[in-house]
Design a binder for these strands. Structure first.
Lengths: 93, 93, 93, 93
DNA sequence: TTGGGTTACCACGACC
DNA sequence: GGTCGTGGTAACCCAA
């Protein structure tokens, strides 16, 4: 059949590469699913921690703080690199 | 050593199961990293789609709408039409 | 007093026009506060609209779309239709 | 004319209180405009500061840090209130 | 069980 | 094109 029925267009449709487009959609949705799975795992861990008697809110704060510390450190290092580069002190890194 | 040195507490500290807590933190941070990796992959796909000539914003809208419940989407669209009609904003649809 | 006490530098400090800088900070923070106040007012209106029975999400969508350029909106909608047609996702519109 | 022409509905339309709805839209858009005006003012100040020789990025960081300090302080005080309430030490505040 | 407040994530737009 | 800041949406938690 040269003209696929409704619900599944395989060639160009209105000048659009339908297959290509569908492929993008599927790849993205597949990854989004994976991501959601992981997010659920994280949630489970928080739940488990709570069940063990830990305060979830505090735990979240620890995770958050650690993350921002890492980011600050990263920013710091980048600045350092920048300055060293500007000063010709690359050997210092 | 019964009293671990600073920087690495292994037993109960102030009545807290430090190992346990550390384990939670590490598991969560590990998963968060994975999650970020996937998010980056998704971003790459959007970039690729853009390079192929697709409109990323429209693509995102399709992905977003597809993960909504069909009934909810239908109800939302109808309400939107209704409001626009009431306001004389039909050009907006 | 040539050497202002700690906590309030009025002249040049380390070659920096401290007063000037402080003035900028204060003016900005003042405006930011105003901005926040208005943002809160907006939120209140949405709440009020909700209380009157309107769907806030739809209302937000109208506001959002109205501040887009008409031509851009038209182009976007057309592209969306096109993609959906190509994918057989017409139910999504 | 009891039936207003297209573009301006004043009574109930499709069971919708059009006037009410339009009023919400207008109030919100009015405030959003004000907000934008203020945001522009802020931008101008940054521009002015830049013209005076200040590093805008650093200035932004100062504003940001001060804001988060205020928020941390707020959080701290709330926690303090909470604990005092829990302990019956309200007189301490 | 649901509604409302809070929080975190994510996408969009502005600026550089 | 890359970054930053902001706004919206959805998830989670608590209270009723």
């Amino acid at each position: 059949m040269r003209e696929p029925g409704p619900g599944h267009n395989s060639g160009d449709v209105g000048g659009i590469a339908a297959d290509r487009l569908r492929s993008f959609v599927e790849r993205i949705e597949r990854l989004e699913e994976e991501k959601k799975g992981i997010a659920d795992d994280v949630k489970d861990i928080y739940t488990e921690a709570k069940g063990t008697g830990f305060d979830v809110k505090v735990l979240r704060e620890i995770i958050r703080k650690r993350k921002q510390d890492r980011e600050d450190l990263k920013a710091h290092n980048e600045l350092l690199s920048l300055y060293c580069a500007a000063l010709g002190y690359d050997w210092l890194l």
